[in-house]
Design a protein around this nucleic acid. Structure first.
Length: 213
DNA sequence: CCAACGATTAACT
DNA sequence: GTTAATCGTTGGT
């Protein structure tokens, strides 16, 4: 495993561009992590762009903190954070060094390692069975399927456990654009920040929930 | 120091 | 549609 039809390895410079250019280009790409337990490969179906100092919805809007310092580092690394006291979520760091841009990976199709991903997602008993397309549906579910936590914050996606596969010809797949999920305040303004991108026909795309005022 | 809240999820009415 | 779960980070005092 590890090779995908029409896909190939990508260089770090793919991520060293503006986040509004990179975010839609991530759709259909495959992110892969191999640890002692398994190899998990996820085909990205939903992302959101966060544009640092020009984005009031971004963690990095008010400058560097201990939590968000990875965003200020080189592109092509993993920004992992913990939220709501329960969940982890992952970004890919985007932009030139020092531009604190990130793409939140909101959903994807688990195309390799689904058995282990399901074990991780079903550690707590559930009332209704988890469908295959629900394994990595939602940011917390993506992180849990990969089995990542805060110790993975800053991981280099071009080394160690991680691989990233883009489309061979760099084509951006047809997609849908809309307002971001769960962003309150000015950054949630749908007209100014419709920076959520998803594949229209993907069943793993999370259901839309508007942010509270 | 402390209070508020969050780039969420799953279950419930 | 509404709400509990659960805690680190953040920003103000």
């Amino acid at each position: 495993m590890g090779n995908f039809d029409g896909m190939c390895g990508t260089s770090r410079s793919f991520f060293a561009r503006d986040v509004l250019e990179v975010a839609p280009a991530l759709l259909g790409c495959v992110l892969q992590r191999t640890d002692a337990e398994a190899t998990i490969s996820i085909r990205i179906t939903e992302v959101e762009a966060y544009a640092g100092e020009r984005d009031p919805g971004a963690h990095s809007y008010r400058g560097m903190t201990n939590r968000n310092k990875t965003l200020f580092g080189p592109p092509g690394h993993l920004y992992c954070y913990f939220t709501y006291g329960l969940h982890h979520a992952i970004n890919i760091v985007v932009g030139q060094l020092g531009q604190p841009y990130g793409c939140l990976i909101r959903a994807g199709d688990v195309i390799e390692g689904a058995r282990v991903a399901r074990e991780r997602r079903e550690q707590k008993p559930r009332k209704v069975p988890l469908p295959e397309h629900g394994l990595a549906r939602g940011p917390g579910c993506v992180a849990q399927s990969f089995g990542v936590n805060l110790t993975n914050d800053g991981d280099d996606l071009f080394a160690g456990q991680w691989r990233f596969f883009g489309s061979r010809d760099g084509v951006v797949l047809p997609h849908v654009v809309g307002p971001r999920v769960g962003v309150s305040g000015p950054g949630g303004d749908a007209a100014a920040f419709s920076w959520r991108y998803w594949l229209a026909n993907a069943s793993s795309v999370s259901t839309y929930k508007p942010a509270r005022a």
